[in-house]
Write a protein that binds this DNA or RNA. Structure first.
Lengths: 184, 184
DNA sequence: GCTTAGCCGCGACAAAAGGTCGCAGCGGCT
DNA sequence: AGCCGCTGCGACCTTTTGTCGCGGCTAAGC
């Protein structure tokens, strides 16, 4: 069994082509989908062994797709892939059955590593003790994401809970997320 | 029933007492441990239904504890709790069987929410009451204190680690601490 | 149907916080 | 002594926040 068949799901066509192309060049059989429906269709057509799923497909979350996708692909591994990786969304995704979670921008190396081994995962191969200090901005952002999720996306409510002005929260959210601590 | 037995594992004795006390007041049966060995001993003695595990026990990661702890407590829920939450460690912990992942500082409200299923008979609460989160300023302050302590008081080093200018850190420290988290 | 209320997004402008120099003082180290 | 690195702080200038205020939109409720 050389290369498992892959399914890439992302609303960014360019991303699909570049990553997909790179993986094909590595010898994988790659299919792609740009929408949730497309992904489900592809998977019922023929199951994939590894699925890459972008967290945000257009306007809405792809978390609800996780279960049906996995249901259609018994034994498959599902790797989330997102530019907005926070602890909160990671927990949500992994509870639903995701097996890994990568933050964009991802290098090809990380992708290959994620789909690489069948994951023996003894528990100490990547203990990753974080003497790694987390940047202040990152901590703030994570907390915001968490509270925002707790108030299911209601910015006004989250702002009140956080003790900041609604306008400020808006502005913080408008900016792109701070770089996550390097994953090495 | 309705009051699951808890096990708190953390190397910070103060934290153990405050959170443990609060949970006891809420009607839970709480046991605590400050070391990995202590936790395993407690759990073989009598299993817990919910385990709170700090990611860093002293110098080393507690990830290797997850599997043995869960093995000793069939069906238990294991909630990670850490001051250095990152997506990478979250993935690692959840792969090993953790059911949730909270970043310190956590409010009692958030802990109770994580406890979620199996809460102690409050009677009725269907519409998911929003938990009371910690003010943003407080989170920032706590994180600064933690990192500063990790660099044993060296402001310059802490500033570098946090990714802020030394002058800014100085100014933040000069101000009095933000309103303490509302303990109830 | 119309009113009320809540949320969202955004422009504008003043106030506050932060980034950036620079300098003097203080231990260690060699 | 001379060299570092850390600290505290003044004085800028730049960026971010706080605070109005608007129009639009959706979900009640009268």
């Amino acid at each position: 069994m050389g290369k498992p068949t892959l399914l890439l799901v992302d609303d960014d066509a360019l991303f699909l082509r570049t990553l997909g192309g790179a993986l094909e060049r590595k010898g994988y059989a790659v299919r792609t989908a740009e929408t949730g429906e497309g992904a489900l269709a592809a998977v019922t057509d023929a199951p994939a062994e590894v699925i890459f799923l972008d967290l945000m497909l257009g306007e809405q979350s792809s978390l609800p797709l996780i279960e049906p996708l996995l249901a259609a692909c018994p034994g498959a591994r599902l790797i989330m892939l997102t530019g907005y990786a926070s602890v909160a969304t990671t927990v949500a995704a992994m509870r639903l059955g995701a097996t890994d979670y990568l933050a964009k921008p991802v290098g090809l190396g990380e992708v290959l590593q994620a789909l690489g081994p069948g994951k023996p995962e003894t528990g100490q191969d990547s203990p990753e003790p974080p003497p790694q200090p987390i940047p202040l901005a990152r901590v703030e952002w994570e907390h915001i994401q968490r509270v925002l999720a707790d108030h299911d996306g209601n910015i006004s409510a989250a702002a009140r809970a956080l003790g900041v002005h609604r306008r400020s929260l808006q502005r913080k959210l408008a900016k792109r997320p701070p770089p996550p601590p390097p994953r090495d």
